[in-house]
């Protein structure tokens, strides 16, 4: 696959999900492949506040996450804006929009962001991705390259 990571040198890709929950690892898997194509990537089980420091230096941020709201095998590219919304009462992790807001408040971040939702449907314990998820991961990689 040809891909021009250097076209946007300040882009940051954040792939997140559990590597032990089947298709939930779609985000990290896609980020791992994009890293080999030269993209600056972070892989995380969940979105934690420290990622705001990484976002601070990026003009464009692309989140990659498995989604049940998109048909298995498909993807959706969604523009994101910062939102001061916590994910819940536990505060261990944030939503993509919440994390962007943290970067705005703490680092005065100004940039563009996208969420690429990777359509998946198998989240049982296991280290393998389903065939539809693998198809969607390939599409997500292409979408990042095309952004």
């Amino acid at each position: 696959m040809s891909c021009e990571a250097e076209r946007c040198p300040s882009a940051l890709v954040i792939g997140y999900g559990s590597s032990l929950r089947g298709d939930d690892q779609a985000g990290p898997m896609a980020a791992g492949q994009l890293s080999r194509l030269g993209f600056a990537c972070r892989v995380a089980a969940q979105l934690t506040p420290e990622l705001a420091a990484d976002i601070a230096a990026a003009r464009r941020v692309i989140f990659l996450d498995a989604s049940v709201e998109v048909a298995p095998g498909e993807i959706a590219v969604l523009p994101l804006t910062p939102q001061p919304v916590a994910s819940g009462p536990f505060d261990h992790h944030l939503t993509p929009a919440g994390l962007l807001q943290l970067a705005v408040d703490c680092y005065n971040w100004r940039g563009e962001a996208y969420l690429i939702a990777i359509g998946c449907d198998r989240f049982a314990l296991g280290e393998n991705c389903s065939t539809p998820a693998q198809r969607a991961i390939a599409r997500a990689i292409r979408a990042v390259c095309d952004l």
Binding site: P49, P84, V85, D91, L102, D105
Partner: peptide
């Protein structure tokens, strides 16, 4: 709003310090 995002809105320097101290350890 009594959470890390509320903290960042009102005390950004302290929220940033927390992020960077934790990041240093990690």
């Amino acid at each position: 709003r009594r959470n890390v995002l509320g903290l960042a809105a009102k005390w950004p320097e302290q929220a940033r310090d927390g992020i960077e101290l934790r990041k240093f350890g990690q």
